[in-house]
Design a protein around this nucleic acid. Structure first.
Lengths: 218, 218
DNA sequence: TTATTTTTTTAGACTAGTCTAAAAATTACA
DNA sequence: TGTAATTTTTAGACTAGTCTAAAAAAATAA
């Protein structure tokens, strides 16, 4: 059984590997708000357990084993977030801190039952994909709306970081994460998009299109 | 903020105070499966924080402050158990271990939302009363069925420890915790009880009557 | 290429929570 | 009541996870 702290490190490693290719001791320390010396200690421990590939002074990366653990934590995190929003009525921006605690609860059965109770959701309230119990996560073919041409389709999965207000706007327009979107027309003049969501035509400014994240199937 | 360990001790103290009047170091150690020396250490710490009244070599007891914390942990424990059984379909006998973890999640809002989501239940799946958010718990006027005389009434709240099979039997007979029960007749010959539950007459052996817990209103 | 800066690791210390072994206090009983 | 048994506490050690300060390695730049 892994400690909460170990799980936090593995999860951090996973997220950092997404964004940057090699993961440095300092970047982990920044991410987790710890001192680099503490990180070094933990890296040794995780390497011992074969969760990471680690060589002094070189960066580090998750092994298959480590990645699987990271993904099961992320699965738990995202399922709990979904529960908090869908069932308990929390706002999508309030759930992260609570899910950080819930993700460490140890019970496979709990998570499988929760998954079923929620209707086996594919995306969490922020639009991030939920790994399945084998630790497989949809390789997001993530695009921004502005990359689509007329008549192309996608599924709305989220908004870029730091554009919380866009999510609020979508809420008001009754646009939900997971909704399909189809580009009807792009105005050449100012880049405005006319799109169809739930059989309703909507008009999105270029700025919105630059921040609205989609999943496509190409 | 109190540590998980502190919370476990306070909860143990609460339960032990229910059953026995004075709580000894050894009894806590037994209950928590720890060594008495570890308990002494923690008692000092809890006394420091004014959660317990503690004097070397004398027993210990919860202060008002300590009792309130114990009751909020118990509230969380019982609400989570209710969630696990009612919503996730766990059996009543599977949920304790999981709730032991969930009860330490720190978020008042989470618990209030959960309480509402569950419909503000008064009893958990084992029939134990759930404290309210002020830490008030129903003073159970707990009786065993065998204490009732003909025509007296009560509410079924649980079974005695170690009689899990009785709960299974009740399940099969479609008798649920929270159901009202009325004694129709007691056979002098062998102490068999004829009772009415949900407008159905049932016959309970003396052994059943000795293990079925009720709440009455006298 | 050498010197300087930055990054990473090591060494040693601290805290919380546990343990074992021994000492001290209390309780039981002959 | 005095001795033996039991209970409780103390003293000291250990682990996990963190920290600070200093040393070592790697990267950068003059």
């Amino acid at each position: 059984m892994n400690s909460q702290s170990e799980e936090d490190y593995l999860k951090a490693l996973y997220h950092l590997e997404m964004d940057f290719d090699s993961v440095s001791t300092n970047s982990i320390a920044d991410y987790l708000d710890m001192k680099p010396s503490s990180v070094t200690d933990m890296l040794k421990k995780l390497a011992e357990k074969k969760f990471i590939n680690y060589q002094k002074y070189k960066g580090t990366s998750l092994t298959k084993k480590g990645k699987l653990i990271a993904l099961t934590i992320i699965r738990k995190h995202r399922l709990w977030e979904t529960f908090l929003v869908d069932k308990l009525g929390f706002g999508w921006d309030q759930v992260h801190i609570i899910a950080e605690q819930l993700e460490h609860i140890k019970s496979e059965e709990l998570i499988e039952n929760l998954d079923n109770f929620l209707g086996n959701p594919k995306y969490d309230p922020h639009g991030d994909p939920i790994p399945n119990k084998e630790g497989e996560i949809e390789k997001m073919n993530q695009k921004v709306l502005v990359e689509l041409k007329a008549l192309q389709k996608g599924i709305i999965t989220g908004v870029k970081k730091g554009t919380a207000s866009l999510l609020n706007y979508l809420d008001k327009e009754k646009v939900k994460l997971g909704d399909s979107i189809k580009v009807i027309e792009i105005l050449e003049f100012d880049g405005t998009y006319i799109v169809e969501i739930n059989k309703r035509k909507l008009t999105f400014s270029e700025k919105i299109c630059q921040n609205l994240l989609l999943e496509t199937n190409d």
